[in-house]
Design a protein around this nucleic acid. Structure first.
Lengths: 215, 215
DNA sequence: AATTTGTTGTAGGAATTTCCTACAAATGTG
DNA sequence: CACATTTGTAGGAAATTCCTACAACAAATT
């Protein structure tokens, strides 16, 4: 519980701009994330930590100028309360995970995990806890989500499918012979049940797991 | 002009799930993109192209099983009308670009370019044109965007700053002593002028280029 | 079997947001 | 100076989100 009502002050160190951009766009969707800095190099990160004062640092394992572990160690020696999430290129072995945890890193997420894992992990470590969630599952098919689908009722699935294929609400309402309001309610419930916030998540989810009637 | 009113049928081949997810979330925000398939390996892609029938294929230069160029060549030999956008790990040299173009690849975007470049390029090549936009600029500070900032008026900048730091509309209205409607109008205009669609883009933009008064 | 409890199909209200339009005052430009 | 554009301001309509309601049905419990 501690004192967790403050915003998550985040610093992101990722070498490739394209990757950093798309990740940041995702993360900044969450209103309680406050981006206090970003860089593409480890040295740069170390130099700016002092003034940026992040609570969490997301950093890649392999950077151009140095490896993430080294940077992490330096960062921690100066800011022992910093929570660090390391993004590894490959699933980490137990022994390597041990090394990381020993160094004070709070969590490791590999680039082969779904993005939800990263977000979830990020929020888990925000207050200093260590999180070793699904470190050993290389490419889990989105964990609980596949099950979550079964929580949808028949009608909800129909609507989910239509929404995911970008059928306008009006048309869905017309086709089902119900009011727009009703369709909105379905939409709400679907998003709640699946834990999504934005359309792309639903689209991708439906495509990946239940592409029932594609055209 | 040709026949461009159809949706862009997109296939994405990117090895790392985290990267693929975040890119897809971004791309699927555009309502005229229809994701017809995705895979993490080149071979898999080749096998599924036939049934997925994409118009554009985004593929990484370095895949685990094969390199993007080889896959691209195979894909093109079977589907000559396919537009391919290659994502390279590093800025491509002129000579290498030549090789790619010769092979029939329509565009190359490096991982060091901002994500907007990728999106822009994607829409440029959708109808078969070749696009060699900013291939030689490694880490351009978002091109025209920095200038676009100067298109904002003083008041608009004020509001942009507040919106980017997540001040609620109501509060902005209160602080400026105008109606919420007015603030919404500013918001609209800001987004139009900068060409953004979602809040994260504005947040990132303000942070990167004009972090005037941070707390 | 009867009662309680949870889920589903349906929709209304309020607040917020988006999109589009308007319009007078300020500014710029030929 | 006269015409064109931008800026500050806001209203209307439609869409969306968030929250609440409620009857019908299913499932579980006594």
């Amino acid at each position: 519980m501690s004192q967790s009502n403050r915003k998550l002050r985040l610093y992101v160190t990722i070498g490739q701009r394209l990757f950093r951009d798309s990740l940041l766009f995702q993360l900044l969707l969450h209103s309680d994330i406050d981006l206090v800095g970003e860089s593409e190099s480890g040295i740069d990160t170390l130099n700016r930590l002092e003034s940026a004062k992040p609570g969490v640092l997301i950093i890649e394992e392999n950077l151009l100028d140095n490896d993430g572990l080294t940077i992490a160690e330096n960062a921690l020696s100066m800011h022992p309360t910093l929570s660090i999430l390391l993004i590894s290129d490959t699933p980490v072995s137990a022994s390597r995970l041990g090394i990381y945890l020993e160094a004070g890193i709070k969590a490791v997420v590999s680039k082969h995990q779904p993005i939800q894992d990263l977000v979830k992990t990020l929020f888990c470590i925000r207050n200093g806890q260590v999180y070793v969630g699904a470190w050993n599952k290389p490419d889990t098919p989105s964990q609980g989500l596949v099950n979550a689908y079964h929580a949808l009722s028949g009608r909800e699935r129909e609507v989910a499918q239509m929404i995911a294929s970008r059928t306008p609400i009006k048309e869905i309402a017309a086709q089902l012979g119900v009011s727009c309001k009703t369709v909105h309610s379905y939409k709400d419930r679907i998003f709640i049940k699946l834990g999504f916030e934005r359309l792309p998540e639903l689209i991708l989810f439906m495509k990946r797991h239940h592409n029932g009637a594609a055209a």
